[in-house]
Design a protein around this nucleic acid. Structure first.
Lengths: 206, 206
DNA sequence: TTGGATATTGCCCTTGGGTCCAACAGCGTC
DNA sequence: GACGCTGTTGGACCCAAGGGCAATATCCAA
């Protein structure tokens, strides 16, 4: 049997209207999502757990920091949680900017239940993907950071397909030395074949 | 000296208002873009050259096929030309859908010159990138298509880092045979090292 | 000053990969 | 039936890569 999604994704609701929070929470809970309610941007920023997977539903018109500003703050701390904007009186320019910034959706109140649920579903999926990608990226960076300058240098030559002899000539050292660096580099990068090394580096840089 | 961009990008203007076409054409020509003017979606679809690089500026409210429908048609023929929407009386839902479909920008009339120029610049750059990526993808696909079934099979094992001996065991043949297929595969894929092969396949699949 | 990290090199041996030439069998086409 | 494509295998040879063991040199910090 395939792995079930046992831990329900969390939807962080940020709206200064208590009745909206209640309605959204009721709707999404009915679809199996865990909901957390915040009445302001500051409240959300200070209390939410950035490490927990899920998405955020933001009212644009908030007292203090508004929805757009809140999203800007969120984007500064990767992996950024996917956002869905809600607004009562939004503009086209605002919605377009939000989408260009990477928002999943931008909905107007009163919101259609289906629209919101679909957006939340897409957002949570993107969050899973983004967190996986971020974890991989971080892992690769840690391994890269453990390399010495020479090992890193050798690695860049190896991933471009150069032979030990050529690398040695480029670096002005002997082939045997390249072999030593190369061996240590492969161990630190936790790969056993050149194919694996090239794959993780290529994906990391793209 | 680095290569200059000698061939100016073309901006395809689609609007049923002649005065709008003139104004946009004048503005963009002044910024070094070549402009082509079309008064309807059908006119554009039947006459434009999909192979020429550039972007399209679409009025949403067009007689016959409207701007959204036109963009849907464009997306069916990759590499899709990047689009910038213009509208006199658009809705948030419309702009959000357009952005979700991959539009570069969605501007309201009367449009700010800077907004349009920036959008066109971004769109043309994305078109260049997209066309380069598309050409590379197509090239790889042609080479893959030239492989025999066996060669393709061997290739999938090679890019996962398996040794000839292991591949031979998996395929129920002798190592020597694997070497032959491998050699022919490398020649057809036009690569000289495993690193190059892994890179193009990894980028092609991602 | 001494120990640890890093870089360097040599020698030797094993394994793996690349490339010649040559050959045979199945399968479909002309 | 001859021909071409594909898949298969053999042998021989060379080069590349990996690993073990040993040694030297430099630099920095405790």
């Amino acid at each position: 049997m395939p792995a079930m999604n046992d831990t329900p994704a969390t939807v962080y609701l940020v709206d200064d209207d208590e009745s909206v929070l209640s309605a959204l929470s009721r709707l999404l809970t009915g679809y199996g999502y865990r909901c957390e309610r915040y009445s302001s941007a500051e409240d959300f920023l200070s209390k939410h757990n950035p490490a927990a997977p899920g998405c955020v539903v933001l009212d644009v018109e908030l007292p203090g920091l508004n929805g757009f500003a809140l999203y800007d703050r969120l984007r500064e701390m990767p992996p950024c949680r996917p956002a869905i904007f809600l607004t009562g009186r939004g503009t086209i320019a605002g919605s377009v900017n939000a989408m260009k910034s990477g928002a999943i959706d931008f909905l107007t109140k009163p919101v259609e239940a289906d629209d919101l649920v679909n957006a939340v579903k897409a957002a949570c999926q993107r969050d899973i993907d983004a967190r996986n990608a971020f974890a991989r990226k971080k892992s690769v960076e840690e391994r890269l950071a453990s390399l010495t300058a020479r090992e890193l240098e050798v690695m860049t030559h190896v991933v471009t397909g150069r032979m030990n002899k050529q690398i040695a000539a480029d670096l002005g050292i002997v082939e045997k030395t390249v072999k030593v660096h190369r061996c240590r580099m492969m161990t630190k990068m936790e790969v056993r074949t050149v194919a694996d090394l090239v794959r993780i580096i290529t994906l990391h840089e793209s």
